[in-house]
């Protein structure tokens, strides 16, 4: 039983990290008043781009950079459409999902099911030999530690800096921010692209580290779960950590149970993350209706300066 729990806990970060990074991307974007529903597509494209880069002879870090860049480019398409051309955010997000999945399919044609050597765990020397804590905390790959760093950076940037204040003002009340001399277009575009970079990172993590292979549809709804997680986290980075660990824990337990060879209906087991996401959306809605609504007030609304009221 101990080995079961230990193996499970060791694998939790592997599942939690991509969700968490993508969720951070959603949060940064949403704080500027833009909901990018395209996460699923951005992750798909970046996951494919990462593996293709490696299979083309690139290094892992190079592949990561390519994936992040792809995330930025695809989110820039979304940003230019919604922020500059004022297209509907929901519809544009869905288009980005389709575009990302489509691009990943076209780009990754011929590269599916070809395993790669991904990021390996960092060598912390003797620390790794500590009981329990060693393998769990000091046995992860480098990207997990980068993720921790990213959470801290995002949390600090959004909530503690002047730029973060301006970013949040754009998401709460863009006309006020505009009057205060904040360039709403630039801030929103910037937030969308930074968010896209984070989602790209998350996608790359899936293929370069967690899966070490690329197959179509490998993102399997994680982009959507990340959005649900952001709602659950009430758009706050540190709360997203809690959520991501719960989700990562749930996802991680599925292969562990399968590995024991226990006779459980495997497809029902695989429904768990989706059902959990539903639960996470429903429970707060039922228990604390309306109270503590932290959603950025201008979320989903496009800003137009010369609009007459």
């Amino acid at each position: 039983m101990d080995t079961f729990i230990l193996n499970w806990l060791i694998s939790v970060p592997l599942f939690a990290a991509p969700l968490l990074i993508a969720c951070l991307g959603v949060i940064v974007t949403a704080r500027a008043g833009v909901l990018n529903l395209g996460v699923e597509g951005i992750m798909a494209l970046s996951a494919a781009a990462g593996v293709v880069s490696v299979l083309q002879g690139g290094s892992l870090w190079w592949a990561l950079a390519v994936a992040v860049l792809c995330g930025m480019l695809l989110s820039a398409v979304f940003g230019i459409a919604t922020v500059v051309f004022k297209t509907d955010q929901v519809l544009s997000g869905l288009i980005i999902v389709a575009m990302g999945e489509g691009l990943s399919g076209v780009l990754g044609r011929g590269f599916t099911h070809r395993p790669i050597t991904g990021f390996e765990s960092v060598d912390f020397g003797f620390l790794h030999d500590l009981p329990w804590v060693g393998p769990i905390v000091f046995g992860q790959d480098i990207l997990v530690y980068v993720t921790v760093l990213l959470v801290a950076l995002t949390g600090y940037g959004v909530h503690k800096t002047f730029t973060g204040l301006r970013l949040r003002a754009v998401g709460e009340n863009p006309s006020t921010a505009d009057t205060a001399g904040v360039n709403v277009t630039i801030y929103r575009l910037g937030a969308v692209i930074i968010g896209g970079a984070l989602c790209g990172f998350a996608g790359a993590y899936l293929s370069l580290s967690a899966g070490q292979v690329w197959v179509e549809h490998m993102v399997a709804g994680r982009g959507w779960i990340a959005i649900a997680l952001a709602i659950f986290a009430r758009w706050m980075p540190w709360r997203a950590v809690v959520g991501a660990l719960i989700f990562g824990g749930t996802e991680a337990i599925i292969p562990r149970i399968q590995a024991t060879g226990a006779d459980v209906p495997v497809y029902f087991l695989m429904m768990l993350p989706y059902l959990l996401t539903l639960a996470v959306l429903i429970i707060p809605a039922i228990t604390s209706r309306g109270s503590q609504d932290d959603t950025p007030a201008a979320l989903l609304t496009n800003y137009l300066r010369e609009d007459r009221h």
Binding site: F162, L165, R166, E172, N173, T176, A177, T179, A180, V182
Partner: peptide
């Protein structure tokens, strides 16, 4: 303006910072 240009969820000080931070060189 008739409709105040204030962010409801920010504190008074944060609103001042938002509007005047750059001009006055204030960052916190």
């Amino acid at each position: 303006h008739q409709h105040f240009r204030l962010v409801g969820r920010f504190t008074v000080a944060e609103n001042i910072l938002l509007a005047c931070g750059e001009a006055l060189g204030v960052r916190t």
